[in-house]
Design a protein around this nucleic acid. Sequence first.
DNA 1: GCCGTTTTCGGCCCGACTGTTTTCAGTCG
Length: 647
Amino acid sequence: MAGANSWSLPKPRPNGPPFFSRSQISTVLHQVGVLLELNGANPFRTRSYLNGSRTLSAMTNDLYEYVSNGTLVDIKGIGKGLASGITQAVEEGDWPKSWAELFETTPSGLIEMLGIPNLGPKRIKMMHDELGVENIAELAAAAEAGLIEPMKGFGKKSQQKIIDGIELLHRFHARRRLNIGQRYGEAFEALISGIPGVIKAQLAGSTRRRKETIGDLDIVLAVDLDRHEAVTKSILGLQGIADVKGAGDSKVSLILDTSLFSDGFQLGHIDAQVLDAIGGDAYEQLESGGTIDAQIRLVEPHHFPYTLAYFTGSVEHNIRLRKRAIERGLRLNEFGLIPDEKAGGLKGIEAAQYSLLANDEADIYRHLELNYVVPELREDTGEIEAAESGDLPELISYSNIRGALHNHTTLSDGAASLEQMANAAIQMGWSWLGISDHSQSLKVANGVGPDALLAQGKLIHRLNQQWDKDGTDFRIFQGVESDVLAGGKLDYSDDILATLDHVIASVHAITKWRARDEVTNTEELIKTMENPYTTILGHPTGRILQGRDGFPVDMHEVLRATAELINDGHTKAIELNASPYRLDLDWRLCKYAKELGVPISINPDAHSLAGLFDVHHGVQIARKGWLEKGDILNSKSADELSAYFSG
DNA sequence: GCCGTTTTCGGCCCGACTGTTTTCAGTCG
């Protein structure tokens, strides 16, 4: 969960019940769980709050219905305790006293400290209790002054690790965006693959699951036992290693830097608004001097599928698999799947000599009577159930993409002309491209006035005619990225809007929207969708990954309202902004949009030719969000899309 | 705090690594 800054309990909406939304309750449960951790509570108690939060965030039914029927306890993972707290909040607008006290008595600086690598709640609490440390700045000062080292259970190394960890946190907020992780991970994986003795090398962890941000890199290697030492030695000689944190026979911990990339680390063109949110020019400097942690694990080939599955995660998915194994008289660990009676008292790798054989991960799922689950779906958001019943989705792939909407040109703040963008799309094998420059109110992005927009329309018309005459299978759709004005109004008069193929409505007054409450924002977004000229809601929450949180909004509600509009015959879709800095709509909501029948448009929001390639990032996230070919606009042919726009 | 074909107690996924210890606690995935 992003942004640990200044947690506080939300205020009840004025006209309840319900006084709080499902997403608000979910957030509070998560925060209570973390605060309990920091207060040294029973870890299982902590977990039940975190589980409860997860359950609610994945839940798509109306929470208030459960509350008013008194059926909350029927939900698995919600017991008497959580149910009574939730009920009190939703029905009376009042948080349980014990929860409120946690918020009041826990310094918010402690929450931020959880972001420091290798520092968890126990030691944070200890330093708070013994040294009076209340925030990261005070912790840094205490470490620099040598106050940590003499404490029981700490030492010189832990003190230095804290100093280093704070430095890392300040530079990168500890986590990195997926695209950065993939570039480091894939480059290093390729280097390792070339080492003699390495039978297989595979990037695992959250990068393989395509999480939008990642902590560090996990790479699993299949290596014969007698080659482990030689391979480890070779790894330590590879380029790109800034530091070796540890090197044993089965695990190597490294810090990688940009010397991994022979031709340097280039970021490419970044949309000015995005760049602003992630630190401006200093950001590029930061990334070029950046580092990333990597863990390499060496196992024998017959363990490889188990180790790969284990380190791919997620933790929640693995827990479900292990429980399933237990129900079948089996034990699952990172080395094997072992029948109980054979394992006896043996543990770990010792027990694994009796493991069932697995040539690949699919075999592991087969042993557990499940269909194979691709890494993107391993988040325990219903994939186990679907794998059991045979209802796993047939996920989209890049080959389904025939074009993309939401692209900018030099007419507003793009770096390439209309013709250049179109030619690039043709080169990519697409059969259509949607152009949507910024609307007139967005002065900082050189927003387009009505006359220039109409002129662009004429140019597009001419180009389309030309391609038609040439027999070139390509078409441009003219849209606009309209600012959302007060009351869900769009940025042009109706007669101008009527000339366009599509209108992407995007909120850009982020500061104002972030300062407002969830209810107001939700209503405004719904009004925006209700505007007859709105076709697509652009970057729905305005978040910038590792830059800023989105504005508060109940996207479930917005999606439900959108579904109703679609049922009434309107043409509406939601953007999955494919920029690796945004990836907004969040993948967690894609699955719900799909269930409601709300189409998703994977939009690169390209501000340059290279920006069009961001569609690849969007496809990855769409897959993570369970989307199939029929759920996205990008798989339509030009004729199908044209028909879709005209309703 | 949740859960239950061992249901009101006593479990809760499992193992490795690190740094600190001399048998273990904390953290991570």
